[in-house]
Amino acid sequence: MTAKLTKDYIVNQIKRNIRGDDRKLDEMRELTIERGVSANAEGSARVKLGKTEVIAGIKMDLAEPYPDSQDKGVLTSSAEFLPLAAPEFEAGRPGEVEVELGRVVDRGIREAEVIDFKKLCIVEGEKVWRVFMDIVVINHDGNLMDASGLAAMAAILDAKMPTIDKDYKIDYNKREKPLPLTTIALPITVMKCGNKLIIDTTADEEEAIDTRLTVTTNESGNISSMQKGGPGGFTVEEIVEICKIAGKKTDELIKKHFKSKKN
């Protein structure tokens, strides 16, 4: 826990455009993405965003499609704070923060149609590929939303699909094709402190300020998901400004860390 005096100090500094680690308000921490961190997964990635560390993995199996989308594969995701990631994390059923994290990352990817689900259909109405996207937080130093989104996206790009024989038996040792993808989408979370907007917050900063808007943008600059969190509020103008910041940052991240999936 951060002491009250420290919180007030952080807020006052942000109001003067100063952050503890000398970053600008719209500057992200150093990002490293490492692919293939777990060999049994179809795809996996470790993201380090400053001291925040998140691992995401993709597993696949065969399942029945949902009744309302008979010709599409299925995406199932989860997010978990491992008890080792921060003193306040405990084992057990996912709490509301984890639930929200998993669902916001899931929606961003699902709604942007990052994965071409139609191509994951094997027999319409009967058999489709099911993609499990699991996110685990290894070290919590803030901005888990963006770190998780980056890890999930990197794991999807890392994934190779297992093969099936004519009896639909899966061979996990023979992974061949990459997942069929249409775009890349990443969440950017912008927090509000007085009238300042700030990105990629650390755990200390998140103890001091608490109102945020997460915006997931795809390669063509369109928004696929938004989620406001925390007790405060935003004006319409701030929301538009945040959408623009998210679009710009996503574009920068894709150019620097990902290969385009457009077409």
Binding site: G221, S224, K228, G232, G233, F234, T235, I239, V240
Partner: peptide, 19 residues
């Protein structure tokens, strides 16, 4: 006051449309 305290969205929209 016009202050927005909940906002969620999913789909595919431009910034202009969101506004």
């Amino acid at each position: 006051t016009g202050e927005i305290t909940l906002l969620q969205m999913d789909g595919d929209a431009s910034v202009d449309e969101i506004e």
